[in-house]
Computed example of a mutant assay.
Amino acid sequence: MEMRTQEELHGIVIIGGGISGLATALGLHKKGMKSVVLERSETLRNTGAAIAFFHNGWHAFDHLGVGDQLRAKSTLITEMHTKWVHKDGTGDVIPIGEEGLRCVKRSDIVDALADSLPSESIRFGCRIVAVETDPVTSFHAVHLEDGSVMRTKVLIGCDGSNSVVAKTLGLKPPNLFRTQVAQAVTSYPNGHGLSNHFLYLWGDKLLLGRVPIDEKTVYWFVVQEVNPKDFESKEDSRVVRDLTVEALKDCPAEVVEMVKRCRFPYIESDIMDNDCGWGCYTLAGSGTIQGAGTALEDAVVLARCLSQEMPIGLSESKMSDQEIQIRAGVALRRYARERRWRILLLSAKSYLLGSILCASWPKRFVFLIIFSKILGGKFSHTKYDCGHL
């Protein structure tokens, strides 16, 4: 590998080119603030299954300017049908609301966000080996594997649960549940024939969700309590699919067939973490319930907070380093305050949902009471409005 030794100076550097990083860059771009996204992979990370967004996510999409584009690639879902594997009957039908939810392929989301950014905003193949902070200015030096260094006045970590920025902040690793999620998109060339509802199918320590994306594609996920050793070969999609089919053996035949038909299921661990910010660096994106929707909220709020303190953008600013440090710190602390209680609520809901799946029946009853009566139930958090850019 050719080693580069040059240094670059940027106003804002974002680590991670997934949905959170791209949305944050787009929010800043909409406010006239330049940023550079450092992505580890050589191309856009647009692989993956799909994501269901409620009102809170679509509100953020609209402010980022990609809402209508993504709505055109999705189907409106206004009802949730909840059923139990070992119980007869039709189950419960729960209205989601007028806004409902829509499920979008992850590749469509990533492409829409990236296409709305200037081409020079994203740097690929950037493998970060260290992040240092200047003790005088509080600015940061991001050291890359090829030997180059990117100095920045504000550093934003959108690089997931193993975040380099989180380690710089001194945060503990995120808590892991004893659950894992297998998910995929199944295609039906002649149409799936399903009604437009969100199916929630509960089994013994298992939960299946199914959402139509359009007339020919369906997104599904299976959450189950597992021993991590059962998924040592989780990178092999065939192993993931076979293990998931086995777990669904008591489910309706159409559900099992849906999983068998998929080509590339993905698996990931459920996590819980917190957003925070100190000095001139912060985190965005969340591993809580509605994680992608929360990441979009983060992007809008963070761009708003920074632009209020830096209306002309950091790169073109004539302010001294000391004033930039002060203003950036004020903006990021405001962002952390605004998001703290929101993330606390979502973390509590995430914890309870993971606990319900793995708990005994008496504990499940208690957790369900807390979830529905104290934390607002299934959809209260989806009506949240993160405000304008």
Rank of each mutant, 00 (worst) to 15 (best):
E2N: 09
E8H: 10
H10K: 13
I12C: 14
I15P: 00
S20D: 02
G27Y: 03
L28G: 00
G32Q: 06
V36D: 01
T43R: 00
A52Q: 06
F54A: 12
N56D: 09
G57V: 01
W58F: 08
D62E: 15
L64M: 06
T75N: 04
L76D: 13
L76P: 06
H86D: 14
H86S: 14
K87Q: 14
D88G: 12
G91V: 05
I96H: 03
G100D: 07
G100L: 09
R106V: 07
D108V: 04
D111E: 11
L113C: 09
D115V: 04
L117I: 10
S121E: 07
T133I: 15
D134M: 12
V142L: 12
L144S: 04
D146H: 06
D146W: 07
K153S: 13
L155F: 11
I156V: 15
N162K: 13
V165F: 07
L171R: 14
K172N: 14
P173M: 11
P174F: 10
F177P: 00
T179E: 10
Q180S: 13
V185R: 01
T186K: 05
N190D: 15
N190E: 15
G191E: 10
H192K: 08
H192N: 08
L199K: 01
L208A: 10
R210A: 10
K216A: 12
V222W: 01
K234M: 11
E235K: 09
V245G: 03
P252I: 09
V256K: 12
M258D: 03
V259Y: 00
Y266S: 05
D273I: 00
W278G: 02
Y281N: 11
L283K: 07
A284K: 02
A292M: 13
T294C: 14
A295R: 02
V301Y: 02
L302P: 00
E309P: 00
M319L: 15
M319H: 09
D321E: 15
Q325I: 04
R340E: 13
R340Q: 14
R342M: 03
R342V: 02
A348L: 07
L353V: 09
L353K: 08
L353D: 06
P362Q: 15
K363I: 10
K363S: 14
V366D: 01
V366K: 04
F367G: 02
I369W: 15
G377N: 09
S380M: 14
T382F: 06
K383A: 15
D385F: 11
